[in-house]
Design a protein around this nucleic acid. Structure first.
Length: 260
DNA sequence: ATTGTGGCCTGCCCGC
DNA sequence: TGCGGGCAGGCCACAA
């Protein structure tokens, strides 16, 4: 699903299971278990253990348990979390508002009641054991100029493709990148290495403020550009017709006049 | 190593 | 109403 903001919402909700002991591990969809993990390995690592930490790294949600195992949860585009029967995010763009039992891909039950369940109709997310966090770039919510400069590097790829690359910068998805570039007045197709020092500072600062503001508004879909993402849309600032292109394999909206 | 492409899955919406 | 095509906020394995 979701981008950093939605996963952060999930992290807060999942914190409710801190300190609880896992009494059942439900893996109805073996396809959902990634990186060589199977039901036996995951059950063996989690059963009878207590949850000691709930964390987020970019779009990855992690549950650490006693016995040192770490469970990594990825939500793809349509995965949603339900904690103790409550969904922190009821519906997503491009995802049904329903929670069909057939879409349960993974679930934990806890001593004394309560559960943590992943619903994912399209099965684009997944669950893994001991995820390698070293492959993820710095988290976009706390991005510094130095980190952005490092992420952009000398890359000839488009600015947008680099910002979407979780190995370079973790947490941004298609909507947040479009919003941040629009607010920064930068063209998504610019080579990543072409930004000068001033543009790098402006972009790093804008990424942080965009994440913070859209977080307060309620999610990645609440951006000013996002609400305009439809045929015939005009730039919310200057009323120029917005441009719709495919950049970095993703549908991209931008203002052809302001974003340079 | 870096960059770009295709594919994975399924449901929804639009136009005919 | 029914159907087909296009679309989707992610990510991985591959090819060049």
């Amino acid at each position: 699903m979701p981008e950093l903001l939605e996963i952060e919402t999930h992290r807060v909700a999942a914190s409710a299971v801190l300190g609880r002991r896992i009494v059942e591990v439900h893996t109805p969809d073996s396809w959902y278990l990634k990186r060589g993990a199977d039901a036996a390995a995951i059950t063996g690592a989690l059963l009878h253990q207590e949850v000691v930490d709930v964390g987020r790294h970019g779009k990855l949600l992690t549950l650490s348990v006693t016995g040192a195992a770490v469970l990594g949860l990825r939500f793809g585009m349509t995965g949603r979390l339900v904690v103790d029967g409550h969904a922190p995010i009821g519906r997503l763009e491009y995802s049904s508002g329903r929670f069909d039992d057939a879409w349960v891909r993974f679930s934990l039950s806890f001593a004394g009641g309560g559960s943590l369940t992943v619903f994912d109709q399209r099965r684009l997310g997944g669950v893994e054991l001991d995820p390698d966090l070293s492959t993820l770039g710095p988290d976009a919510s706390t991005l510094t100029v130095a980190q952005l400069r490092e992420a952009l590097g000398s890359s000839s790829a488009s600015l947008k493709a680099v910002l979407l690359d979780q190995h370079r910068l973790a947490g941004l998805g298609n909507l947040l990148v479009d919003e941040a570039l629009w607010r920064s007045r930068l063209d998504p197709t610019r080579p990543a290495s072409s930004l000068d020092g001033g543009e790098q500072r402006r972009l790093a600062s804008t990424i942080r403020s965009t994440v913070a503001e859209l977080g307060r508004r309620g999610g990645s879909h609440t951006g000013d550009l996002q609400v305009a993402r439809r045929p015939g849309a005009l730039c919310p600032r200057c009323a120029t017709p917005l441009q719709r292109r495919v950049v970095g394999t993703r549908t991209t909206w931008s203002c052809p006049l302001e974003q340079r």
